[in-house]
Structures are given as structure tokens and as C-alpha cells.
Design a protein around this nucleic acid. Structure first.
Lengths: 138, 138
DNA sequence: CTCGGTGCAAAATGTTTGCAAGTAC
DNA sequence: GTACTTGCAAACATTTTGCACCGAG
């Protein structure tokens, strides 16, 4: 919440009730929701909010760095409230994303080809496959 | 081309002229085109093809494993003709994807949390940042 | 000849924009 | 009071679906 207020001040954003609710909901989220998921969640608390506001707010949050967008395959955007360095396992069947925390992944070196002239902001490992639940279901 | 014919046989797909053209174009592509890029490319060779066929064919190709879809952030799907193990640098400004080849990335271990019950089909490293061209442009 | 593939048009899905009215500061 | 935000509606972009016709095997 401090981060939120601080960033709002920094970027001249007003702390509207809508933004507060969206911030709290995504912070408390353990998943990687898409905009529509967030809209449904937020509307339980703030029934008159528009989809539009949720969408714009999520994009604004990624711009000011209190949220990340995570990799997907062309479907709806998905957001990640965890700003710590972490990695993902992606189930290609149920589309679930599982967070992975691993020091050796974090410490991975940046390959030479990318160093000159490039700025690397984030580096992450993505594992793709079938999760335990989907495997069990077969 | 052999891979193409073999896979078509395997999955009972007909080798239509449309599919042949699409296959050749994506194979010769050094980029990571989206469906619309492919449509434009293919239409130069096969002017009467529909967008629809290109889209369906690309999806079919990913299903039979002669193409991969690559990670994105909710925009149009992008395809990758390179089936070898490789990694990506992603410019968040110009949206360009640069292929990275690196043995130590290839040899990365799979973390323990994912081993029981999970099937890992692919693993890759994604670097996100600003590419040399975009940096120069500032 | 037959079944899968194509092209078209329409629908569905997801995102963005323009603007009048509202509200945080 | 003013500038930023919101909600709405319409536009846009991308993908998917249904179906009649076509053509590769």
C-alpha cells in the first residue's frame, strides 16, 4: 500500500477508490489473472466499476512498475503481482502459471551476444509442459 | 520439406498448394512473424489465399510440431520456425524477438518443485529489455 | 468419388479510443 | 477550480466458427 501511494505521487496519479480496490485485489492474488478475471473480482467489492477502468488501471500499474505483464501465447494479457525475481512453469493444457523461485535461475549469466548496446531489464526461465493436475486427469 | 510431407502423412493432412507455400515462407523466415505478416508474405506468392487459411494452417502446423508459438504479451500470436532449442531476447520497445543460442542455457537444470507429476516439454530463457537499435534511437 | 481443405462472411473475443460528467487534491 | 479519472459506447484488432463449394488422394 505504501508502494502504491508512493508511486502514485511519483507519477501524479490520483488515489481513487477504484485504483485502491484494484490494487488490493491484485496484490492479494496468488494467481496470474487476466483483465476479465480482475474485473470480476473487483466488481464483487466495487459493483459499479467498469471493465474499462479495470483494464486501464492494470495497464497504468504496469507502466509505473507495481505490476508485471507475463508472457502468453496471444490470448488475453495476464498480470503478475509478484515483483520479485522469479520464474514460471506454464501448463499448456490448463493454461495455469506456477511461480518458481530458484537462485541458480536468478543468477544465470547474460549471454555475450546481447551485451553490446542492449539493456536487459529482466531475465527469466520459462518451463512449458503439463502440470501434475492435467497429467493426473489423463 | 521432407519433415512437412512426413508430418502430413502422419496426421492425414493433404499437401495442398496453400500449405506448401505457407510452409516454405515460414521456413525461410528469419523473423518471428505474426499471422498477418505471414498472410502478407504468402499472398505475394499465392494472391488468392484467404487470411483464414493462413491462420488455420499456422495453427495446424503448431499442432503437428513443425512450428512453435512464442511467448508474447497479449498481442497477436507470433510463430517461430526454428525448432532447435534456443532462447529469446525481447525488445519491449520495438517488440522484436532476437534468437539466442547458448549451451549453458540449454543445459539448465529443471528445478525440484516441478519434477513430481509434471512433464516439462520445453525450457527456455527469456531476456527482456531494450535492443541496440532502440537504445541508439534515444 | 470422398473426405478433408478452402474461402467467405459473420460472430466472438479482447483491447483501445473519444468524450461528457464526476471527483481527488 | 482544475486536471486527472471514470463510465459508456463505439471503434478496432485479432481469432474463431459455420457452411457451401472445391480438389487432393
Amino acid at each position: 500500500m505504501d508502494l502504491f501511494r508512493q508511486k502514485c505521487k511519483e507519477y501524479n496519479l490520483k488515489t481513487t477508490p477504484q485504483r485502491v480496490v484494484i490494487y488490493n485485489e491484485i496484490r492479494n492474488s496468488k494467481e496470474h489473472p487476466c483483465t476479465d478475471n480482475m474485473f470480476k473480482k473487483v466488481r464483487r467489492i466495487f459493483p459499479d466499476i467498469s471493465f474499462d477502468t479495470v483494464n486501464r488501471t492494470l495497464l497504468t500499474f504496469t507502466e509505473i512498475g507495481i505490476l508485471n505483464v507475463v508472457e502468453g501465447y496471444g490470448g488475453p494479457k495476464r498480470f503478475d503481482p509478484d515483483l520479485n525475481n522469479h520464474h514460471h512453469f506454464w501448463c499448456i493444457r490448463c493454461n495455469n502459471i506456477i511461480d518458481l523461485y530458484n537462485k541458480s535461475y536468478d543468477n544465470m549469466k547474460i549471454v555475450k551476444g546481447v551485451q553490446k548496446g542492449f539493456t536487459v531489464l529482466r531475465k527469466k526461465v520459462i518451463l512449458e509442459g503439463i502440470c501434475n493436475k492435467c497429467n493426473r486427469r489423463d
